[in-house]
């Protein structure tokens, strides 16, 4: 197995990694759920006291959307971090995924309630505006994942089917990244960096040629 470290400094890096993993084991996953609402509360407070500038609705909507995308990407990092660097964050994966969904939902809620406001216009926007269609698609893919992010669902579905279902997160991340790329004006770098990160994290999951060969042999 490739554990991602080699050369003369390897023993020190291995010690650091083991120390990190040991430290992480002492952090309870529930701590993340406790911290999760704090950025949202902070943004809401900023938005209502002028901290988000003179147009707080767009600012809040964008900040929540960007956080949601960052959390989705953070979730995609967990498997490659373990596979290539041996850093084990698996215990936090469910919390990261659920918190990502929480922020996607808050982003959507801000758009519905504070931004568009008019129910008739909401449906019109979803069907007429491709970047909104794509964003709603990402949300729709995440709903079954949020609903089945619990031990009972894993038992009911069985590990294999549960894992297959949760591959929908790859589609959701791609659609989320695309949503950002499509909504900016002019040629801007930032959404392309997010999209690039998502694509790299998905490519890392493709089976290597050797494994494909081994499977067919």
């Amino acid at each position: 197995m490739n554990d991602g470290v080699s050369g003369a400094s390897a023993p020190r890096l291995v010690r650091m990694r083991d120390g990190l993993n040991g430290g992480l084991r002492r952090v309870p996953a529930w701590a993340l759920y406790f911290l999760a609402p704090l950025p949202a509360l902070y943004l809401l407070w900023q938005g209502s006291t002028g901290g988000l500038g003179v147009e707080p609705i767009s600012a809040l909507e964008h900040a929540l959307g960007e956080l949601a995308l960052q959390l989705l990407i953070a979730g995609l990092y967990i498997t490659p971090l373990r596979r290539f660097l041996g850093i084990n964050l698996m215990r936090f994966r469910r919390a990261v995924g659920l918190i990502a969904f929480f922020y996607v939902f808050l982003h959507l809620l801000t758009w519905l309630v504070l931004d568009v406001q008019v129910p008739a216009l909401i449906w019109q926007d979803i069907v007429k505006r491709p970047y909104i269609t794509v964003g709603m698609g990402a949300f729709a893919l995440l709903v079954p994942l949020a609903l089945t992010s619990n031990n009972l669902s894993i038992r009911r579905l069985g590990g294999k089917r549960w894992r297959q279902l949760h591959r929908l997160v790859y589609g959701a991340a791609l659609l989320g990244g695309l949503h950002f790329v499509m909504l900016v004006k002019g040629f801007q770098i930032e959404p392309l960096l997010y999209m690039g990160a998502i694509i790299v994290l998905l490519v890392l999951r493709l089976p290597s040629p050797q494994r494909l060969f081994a499977r067919s042999a």
């Binding site: 003179v54 147009e55 707080p56 609705i57 809040l60 504070l114 008019v118 216009l121 970047y131």
Partner: peptide, 22 residues
């Protein structure tokens, strides 16, 4: 005449705060 990516039928007035209506 809408922008291809959003409606131009309404606008948000700057300075209305978090709960301003269009």
């Amino acid at each position: 005449v809408d922008h291809p990516r959003w409606s131009q039928a309404t606008e948000r007035e700057i300075g209305g705060g978090l709960f301003a209506s269009r």
